[in-house]
Amino acid sequence: MTKFIGTGVALITPFKSDLSIDFDALERLVEHNIENGTEYLVISGTTGESVTVTSEEKKALIKFIAKVNKGRLPLVLGIGGNNTSAIIEEIKTTDLSDISAILSVSPYYSKPTQEGIYQHFKAVAEVSPLPIILYNVPGRTSSNMLPETTIRLANDFENIIAVKEAGNNVHQYLELLRTKPDDFLILSGDDDLALGVALAGGSGVISVIGQALPKEFTEMIRLGIAGKAKEAYEIHFKLMPITGLIFSENNPAGIKAVLEALNISNSHVRLPLVEATDKLKNDIKLALAELAKS
């Protein structure tokens, strides 16, 4: 449980100009996060463009990141979707020897009822050899996993240990914090709300901007968990402009533009996503310059 308190980052998948995976950039990104305080790494999440990464590429990403990481940080792997039987099969056939937990998104597109969501995760929990972090992101799935469904799952399955809540809904966060079992983790999936969630009793965040600015972001979250609001908000206010910019067009185009400006990777994305506009790239460079002065 303590492995996932603090800041996890949803790693991008860097691409070369021919859109093959840029493993050199990925190594720089992993080392950048390990060296600057990130608590754990998330592979093949939404920010990793998981829907346009092939199954063979996904295996290669897992193997490569585990090799670079060398056991230094816990690794979380995204295995989710709207085909329950396919998810079960992927869990059964994936080499999970280097993985500490599975991040599983609530079923998208199909728009199941709350009972359907419960039965989906029940089936997943019953076959998973690893702890499961639920992932609720209604803006992408078109289906909101309500707090009562999350808490029902938390109470019924010991290996469902946390939820990454990304509904951008303060009331829903507070309801989860109010009703959760003592040992269940509420993780923010909204970078802009992460500090408030931590101060209210949350256990941390799975962040997008954190992978670019891990030193600042992890310190902010640690201060928030410790209840040091004044110090934490000083960092939060400095990060607000860049955090807002990365989501202004699409994710991960925004964070890839930041990482390009930091000379860690480039800004290539796979269709149907397109790169950040020149205007956004310029705005990001200006925001990073201002942040460096503060």
Rank of each mutant, 00 (worst) to 15 (best):
T2D: 15
T7N: 13
F15T: 09
S20N: 13
S20H: 10
R28C: 09
L29S: 03
I34N: 03
N36T: 03
E39Y: 14
Y40N: 12
S44M: 15
T47H: 08
T47V: 05
G48N: 06
E49M: 06
S50I: 13
S55W: 12
K59H: 06
L61R: 12
I62P: 10
I62M: 03
V68A: 11
N69V: 04
L77E: 12
G80V: 07
N83S: 15
S85G: 11
A86N: 14
I88A: 06
E90Q: 15
K92F: 13
T93E: 15
D98L: 00
P107S: 07
S110R: 04
P112E: 00
E115L: 13
Q119M: 14
E126G: 09
S128M: 09
L130Y: 09
L130S: 10
I132Q: 05
I132F: 09
I133P: 01
Y135L: 12
G139I: 13
R140W: 13
T141C: 10
T149L: 07
A154G: 05
A154R: 00
I160W: 02
V163K: 10
E165F: 10
E165P: 10
Y173G: 03
L176E: 11
L177I: 01
L177Q: 01
R178M: 14
K180G: 05
S188G: 06
G189H: 00
D192G: 09
G196A: 01
A198P: 00
V208N: 00
V208C: 02
I209R: 01
G210N: 11
Q211G: 04
L213R: 12
P214Q: 05
P214G: 02
K215I: 07
K215R: 15
T218W: 08
I235H: 06
H236S: 02
F237T: 13
L239I: 02
M240D: 08
P241L: 02
I242M: 08
T243D: 07
G244E: 02
L245W: 03
I246Q: 04
E249F: 05
E249G: 00
I255M: 06
L259F: 03
N263T: 07
N266P: 00
H268F: 12
E275K: 13
T277P: 04
D283E: 11
K285G: 00
L288A: 08
S294C: 11
